[in-house]
Amino acid sequence: MQKNLILEKAKNIADEALKGKNYELVDIEFVKEGGNWYLRYYIDKPGGVTLDDCQEVSEEISRLLDIYDPIPQRYILEVSSPGVERPLKKDSDFIRFKGKEIEVKTFEPISGKKSFAGILVDFIDGVIVLKEKDTNFSIPKDKISSARLKFNFKFDEQER
């Protein structure tokens, strides 16, 4: 079965499992690693997700996967938080995280670059504005191959 079709069916299952609940579906992956297939759901909610949240969602998704059986091969189901460096994919992600530090990679060079890191200044009409040092870059969303929050580990000199 085509990977895109599996992902589409997996998303429909997630939509049903999360309907009316306070969870957001951040991303879905269907990947082969070390000889095993993995179906990974990344969820979030205001204040972050806990292990109990992941277990609750995993049990509901597993129940629906058993009913609809959209994947012919064996796979391992995982449900987790997207982490501190969560991916930004939807328009609402770029709006929600304005003012935050992000990393962006593009399919093709923009202003001679394919990799950017800076502050997400704005998102207007499908274009992000990213401030890197003293320069603003306008990057069309359809040119972005990946975007994610950037987490900086800052250590207090006294903690060392």
Rank of each mutant, 00 (worst) to 15 (best):
I95G: 00
E60W: 02
D66T: 13
P82V: 10
I95W: 04
I13A: 00
K150C: 01
R160C: 09
L39C: 05
D69N: 11
R160S: 14
L65Y: 01
S81L: 07
D134V: 07
I124Q: 14
L130N: 01
D91H: 10
Y41L: 00
Q2A: 14
R63C: 09
E8R: 09
T106R: 06
A117C: 15
V31P: 00
D142E: 15
L51Y: 09
A117H: 15
K45P: 02
F151Y: 11
E108M: 07
R86K: 13
S62Y: 05
E85L: 06
K90W: 06
S92C: 07
F151I: 10
E108S: 13
D156R: 15
V49C: 05
N152Q: 06
D125G: 08
T135F: 03
I95V: 15
G126H: 06
D15M: 13
Q158P: 03
N36G: 05
Y68D: 09
F107R: 14
K3Q: 11
I139W: 02
V79P: 03
S58Q: 03
T135N: 07
D52H: 04
E60H: 07
E8M: 08
G34H: 10
G35T: 06
I43S: 01
F153W: 14
S146D: 07
I128G: 00
N36I: 12
Y38G: 03
G20A: 06
K3S: 04
K19H: 08
I61R: 02
T135H: 09
G35M: 10
R63V: 06
T135D: 06
V79K: 00
Y68I: 09
F155D: 05
D52C: 06
F137K: 04
Q55A: 12
L77W: 03
F155E: 13
Y68P: 02
V121H: 01
N22A: 08
P72Y: 08
P72R: 07
D69V: 04
V79W: 03
